[in-house]
Simulated scan of single mutants.
Amino acid sequence: MTDRSLRLVLVSTPIGWVGSGAGGGVELTLSSLVQGLAQQGHQLTLIAPRGSSLPKGCSTLSIKLVEVAGADQPSWQHADEDAPVLIPPMGVLPAMLEEALRLSAEADAVLNFGYDWLPMWITPWVPAPMFHLISMGAVSMVMKRAIESVSRWNQGRLAFHTLRQASDFDLLQPARVVGNGFDLSQYIFREESGGPLGWAGRIAPEKGLEDAAAAAAALGDRLLVWGLREDDAYANAVEAAVPAGTIEWRGFLSTSDLQKELGDCRALLNTPKWNEAYGNVVVEAMACGVPVIAYDRGGPGELVRSGENGLLVSPDDVSELTAAVSRCETIQRRACRDWVERHASCAVFSQRVETWIREGLAADGNITAMH
């Protein structure tokens, strides 16, 4: 018997409205998954902060957008290890969860994208089956414990982007890894291999831009930099440490504009200083045919197959990073695109997520979602 469509309530990140860029890679993940699940015929309601819009490519699909007012939730991204839980007065996070639970009576499951304590804590106590796509590693002790607590109660409710991300947590069972997905129709493959070096990500210390800039400077090369400038003092310090003209700031661009410029690069440098959960820009570059030279750390170290779609170098080793640039032309650009098509398309990603949710519901005895 053919599986019937699922009725899903999706809860967006509470850090900025969808389209603002404040949610970082979660926004791209959300966009891809909403599109993929809708194309598979599932009935979706997306709950997001006021001002949000449906992701590009979703306007013609049957998706209901519910906007909720409230103050943005502080990000755990830069929190200290022992940071406490903070919820602003009139915060958007509890307001979105209230709406999700109200709508869950007519849904099969709630899928949460927000990396925060409150949705984890309420999961065992609400009648709605709540699933969580975890977007970061263990950035603080309270979040580590909250995620591990859900794991001990029912690990089937958790999924991760990579095994390296999941390794941050003490799980009782092997982690469910769903990867990530991209609308590949938005990324034009570029066969030519010339052009400058590129770097993309939030402009913040944990992303390690200074190492990429130092490598470009050592080669006398330009480094195109794309991303939301979160920390001006850090950005200015990185620029001051290399010769004038080394860094060319390109700003935070739409996917369409980013891939046009990114595709011109001969390589993308990826230099995370922390356990990156996945590495969206790594896959975006490869989708354009651009090889990635990455530190063998976190998600990027799991995505880059050295010699196939890029090169891995020792973490924090700028000299090794610099030397690897001369070898990037040994990577076939078509092989980069082929890897993405096999492992990280919208369809592949959404099917993994659907399977995870169906199996989780079935394990809980909810057989109606399976038929």
Rank of each mutant, 00 (worst) to 15 (best):
E341I: 05
L54H: 02
E248A: 12
L197F: 01
L228T: 03
L209M: 15
R7H: 15
V353R: 03
M1Y: 11
F131E: 06
F160G: 02
P243K: 09
N154T: 11
V85E: 10
S319A: 14
E320S: 15
G198E: 05
S193E: 11
K56Q: 14
I63M: 08
H161G: 10
V282Y: 06
L97S: 05
Q73N: 06
L268P: 00
Q173V: 14
R7L: 12
P89H: 11
A237C: 11
G208P: 09
D170G: 14
L111I: 11
A287E: 04
W226R: 03
M143G: 05
E192G: 11
N366V: 12
P14S: 08
W199R: 06
V18L: 15
N180V: 07
P119S: 12
V290E: 05
S52H: 01
I47T: 03
G301V: 10
T330Y: 15
P49L: 06
A324M: 11
V11N: 02
A233S: 14
L172S: 14
L28M: 14
V150M: 07
A212M: 12
A166H: 00
V304W: 07
E81Y: 14
V11T: 01
S75T: 02
A107S: 12
D3Y: 13
D316R: 07
A138R: 01
V318Q: 04
P196H: 06
D116M: 07
L97F: 09
P55L: 12
T368R: 14
A215K: 06
T162V: 07
I293K: 06
I357T: 02
R164Q: 08
L163R: 15
V34Y: 01
V92P: 00
S254D: 09
D257L: 15
V340I: 07
L44G: 03
V68S: 09
C288I: 01
E239Q: 13
Q173C: 13
V85T: 06
L86T: 15
F182L: 10
S149N: 10
G299I: 06
F169Q: 07
I63K: 03
R358M: 09
I134H: 03
E206G: 11
L258W: 01
N112F: 11
D108K: 05
E276C: 12
P74M: 07
I147G: 01
G198N: 05
S140H: 03
S5T: 10
A128L: 08
A138S: 04
K207V: 12
Q332D: 13
